[in-house]
Write a protein that binds this DNA or RNA. Structure first.
Lengths: 108, 108
DNA sequence: CACTTAATTAAGTGTCAACTTAATTAAGTG
DNA sequence: CACTTAATTAAGTTGACACTTAATTAAGTG
């Protein structure tokens, strides 16, 4: 799922869509009105975002309201954070390495 | 830059590369040895990651050591967080909306 | 049920980016 | 300087994916 989420936010128009629905639920056609690409294109983007767990749909008659799915972004954040956290370890080691180098060792 | 960073982490092999260099600096060839794609392919991936600000290079003779660049991931996290934070607002509004609906209103 | 509205699915097309091999750059070593 | 090692740049190929228009599904309304 994290794979799909990252894949999903890559496409710039999908990020624009996410910005639009970030603060309020919008229908497919309301979203489409903000772009100059066809409605089916928007629909396809929404499908990708939904399958990535980044948006949710709420049906109301013939309309479908799309909105942000916070859990999806939580997963994404955790993923990004994992690089940050692990690299802290490396940073510590690098500092020690630096220390050793100052004292006359050559790496490799 | 955030565009490039997101673009960069989309490609699965680049994420694998990031995992490899997350805890220790590695040379291009050391990284390449973990995959069954050609060295130039790895080199091209590393270039993308560097231009996205996600890795840094340290030259040492003919070797080039690649490692994580934490600031790049910080930017990424902030971007993802922005969706999370803003959606909190929406969540609050949604709760109020829900309240209104219970009291007999129909949305649209 | 015929018609409208909202949106999707289907089918086909063009572009781009992830690879390939070959050639080149760059640093070091006898 | 010739040779080796490490890595990149160059040039060309292929597949995926973001579009398009046309057709279809689904819900509601006279």
């Amino acid at each position: 799922m994290i794979d799909k989420a990252i894949q999903a936010i890559t496409e710039p128009r999908r990020r624009d869509i996410l910005h639009l629905v970030r603060d309020e639920e919008l229908t497919s056609s309301a979203i489409a009105s903000h772009f100059d690409i066809s409605a089916p294109a928007i629909s396809q983007h929404l499908k990708v975002l939904e399958e990535a767990g980044l948006v949710v749909v709420r049906r109301a008659g013939t309309k479908r309201f799309y909105g942000i799915r916070r859990e999806g972004f939580a997963e994404l954040m955790q993923y990004i954070e994992s690089f940050w956290d692990h690299s802290l370890l490396r940073l510590k080691e690098a500092a020690e390495e630096e220390e050793r180098r100052k004292h006359g060792n050559n790496e490799q």
